[in-house]
Amino acid sequence: MTEAREVLVIGGNRYFGKRLIARLLTAGDRVTVLNRGSSAPPPGAEHLVADRDDEKALSDAIGSRTFDVVIDQVCYTPRQAMTARRVFAGRTGRYVMTSTVEVYEREDSAVPVPESAVDPRTVAVDLELPWEEPEFAEAHYGEGKRQAEAVFTGSGLPFVSVRVAHVLGGDDDFTGRLEHYAHRVRTGAPIAVPPVAHPATYIHVEEIADFLFWAAGADFTGPVNAASDGLLTLDELCAAVAAHLPGGEVRIEVTGSGELSPFAFRRRYAMDNSRAAGLGFPFDDVRQWLPKAVAETLGKDA
């Protein structure tokens, strides 16, 4: 029988984060969730309240605890990474950070990009940028994640960065991105796309929860791409929404410079998932789960 692990989850108590916590608890792990107190964790998990940006508050909340695994769902900047690096030095056997496909925002590759396209060891870190300003941090989301990965890499912590593709599915998708398409299909309003809308990689909400659970229990380190098999075009996404809304109309409007609909990408956002597959994670095919994801999010009465 596998011995229960001590697992700390920082933030991420909704959407795929809550699914991850449920998987950890089902596996018999002793789970502690740390957040600012905005939401309680599910029954069975211990709750610690602290602002992860406040190093003293974070350290005080952790106290003398040590963990087999820390899963950091809400590390967005190199400052946050540096704080966590100091607090958790010598306190965990594994540190898993949820990163993003946006780290590849400068890599407009004709083929899906491997992890080596952005090597955290070569990323320059600038802690003096105004990372604490929400507008700056949001506008530099990909850069913040790149630099956060760089801070952890080579820190002595056994570190993994999970670079997550665009997530779809679930009846609790708070992003509103699929609803954007549903509204336009229902009403015949235009869907704004660039002259060339590039396909992208995606992952289902349940699959990314499975992936993070798997990554927490593995022994590899470094960056790893998490994306379902296959590329999905915007036309396919629109068709899936329209199939769920009989009588609706898909009306495409091409714009060269205006605001675009979600997932209408001017550049490529495709990740190569072969490292994770080679390490033993079995990915689903995006086209197999897409209709289910649309039905889950939009519901029967969408």
Rank of each mutant, 00 (worst) to 15 (best):
R5Q: 12
R5C: 03
L8R: 00
G11H: 03
Y15P: 02
F16P: 04
F16T: 08
L24P: 00
G28D: 00
R30K: 15
L34T: 10
P43F: 10
G44N: 04
A50P: 03
K56A: 15
S59C: 09
A61Y: 00
S64G: 06
V74S: 09
T77H: 08
R85L: 11
A89C: 07
R94K: 09
R94I: 01
M97W: 07
S99V: 14
V101R: 04
V103S: 02
E105S: 12
A110R: 13
P112S: 05
R121F: 13
A124H: 11
W131G: 05
P134W: 05
H140Y: 10
Q147L: 08
F152T: 10
S155K: 02
G156V: 07
S161E: 07
L168T: 05
D173R: 13
F174S: 12
F174E: 09
G176N: 08
E179W: 14
H183P: 09
T187W: 12
A192M: 15
A197C: 15
P199K: 01
T201D: 05
Y202K: 01
V205T: 11
A209N: 00
F211R: 06
F211Q: 07
A216S: 15
N225Q: 07
A227I: 06
G247H: 06
G248Q: 02
V250R: 11
T255M: 04
E259G: 11
L260W: 03
G278A: 14
G280P: 13
D284N: 14
V286N: 07
V286F: 06
K292R: 15
E296R: 09
K300P: 12
